[in-house]
Design a protein around this nucleic acid. Sequence first.
DNA 1: TGTATTGTCTACTTATTCAGTTGAGAATAG
DNA 2: CTATTCTCAACTGAATAAGTAGACAATACA
Lengths: 146, 146
Amino acid sequence: MLSQKTRYAIRAMQHLADNYGQGPIQLAQIAEAQNIPAKFLTTILSELSRFGIVDSQRGKDGGYRLAVSPIDITYGDLIRLMRGSLALVPCASRFAHEKCKNCLEEGDCRTRALMLEVRDRTAELLDGVRLSDRIDPVPAQVDDQD
Amino acid sequence: MLSQKTRYAIRAMQHLADNYGQGPIQLAQIAEAQNIPAKFLTTILSELSRFGIVDSQRGKDGGYRLAVSPIDITYGDLIRLMRGSLALVPCASRFAHEKCKNCLEEGDCRTRALMLEVRDRTAELLDGVRLSDRIDPVPAQVDDQD
DNA sequence: TGTATTGTCTACTTATTCAGTTGAGAATAG
DNA sequence: CTATTCTCAACTGAATAAGTAGACAATACA
C-alpha cells in the first residue's frame, strides 16, 4: 500500500499540474482543495521542493509551482520519489535494490522472478501515465468482493 | 512492500508444497530450512492453519501439511490472505475495497483508474503462478539502478 | 524601514504496525 | 503418564507513520 503521505503528495502534484503556468499556488489553497492537513502538507511540499520537482516562492503572493512540465512527470516517478521503490520486495527493486533480510540466497529464491515481473509490469503502467494526462475517473465501486 | 511475515509465510508454504504428500513436516524443520525464527513461525503457521490452508497435527511425529493441493494455491492467494489486498490503495482493492481516508470522492479520484489497472495486472501475474510451479531462479542482481 | 505574508526547518509527539517472545495449555503417540 | 508437538493470548521493543509546534527566513508592498 502507498502511505498516506505518498497519496497526499500525488494529489498535491496533480493540483499543481492542473494549475501549471498560472503562477504560484499557495499551500493553503492546495490543502483545502485536496483535503490534506495543512501543516502536514508543508512537510510534503518542502520535501518535493528539495527533490527539485517543485519550485517554491516565499512572501506575499508566494506559493508552489511545478519545476518541470507535467508532461515530464509520471506517477511512477512520484511513487519512487516518496516511497523509494515500486517493488513488492527489496530484492525485486531495480533502482533501490537490496537483499531481503533473512531470505535465502538470491540465486535460490523461488519468488524473485515473479516479483521482478510484477515490479516491471507495475512500472510500465505507472510510468506510462503522466501528471498532464487527464484520467477519466472510474465510477465508484459498489460491490465488495481484493 | 510485503511484510516480513508475509514473506516468511510464502517460504513456509513453498516448503510444505515441496513436501506435499509426504506426511507432516515439523515446524522446526521448516524454520531451519527457510531461515525463519522458529517462535515467530508458530504464529504464522497457526494463522495459516486457522485460515484452513494448512492442516496441523500435534504430538509426536506431528507437524504441518498443506490442506489443499499446491496446484490450487496461487501466490496471489497467499498475499491476499496475509496482507488483505494486492492493491496499492484501499479504494483499488477488489476483495477488501474501502474508501481511502481523507481522499476526495471516489468519482472525482484522478488515480483510481490507474490504481485499478495496476492491481488487476498484478493479480493476473500473481494468480497465474501456483505453489506447485517450479520457478527458475533469476540470477542474483549485480547492478544497482528501482 | 517595517510589517504582513508565505514558505523552511528542526524537533517533537502520538498512534499504529511490525517483528518477535513468553509462557501456559491442549492434543497425540507410545 | 510422559515426551513431543502444535495452540493461543498476551506482551514487549523497535520502527515507521502521521501529524504538530514553533522559531526562522525570504519577499512584497506600503
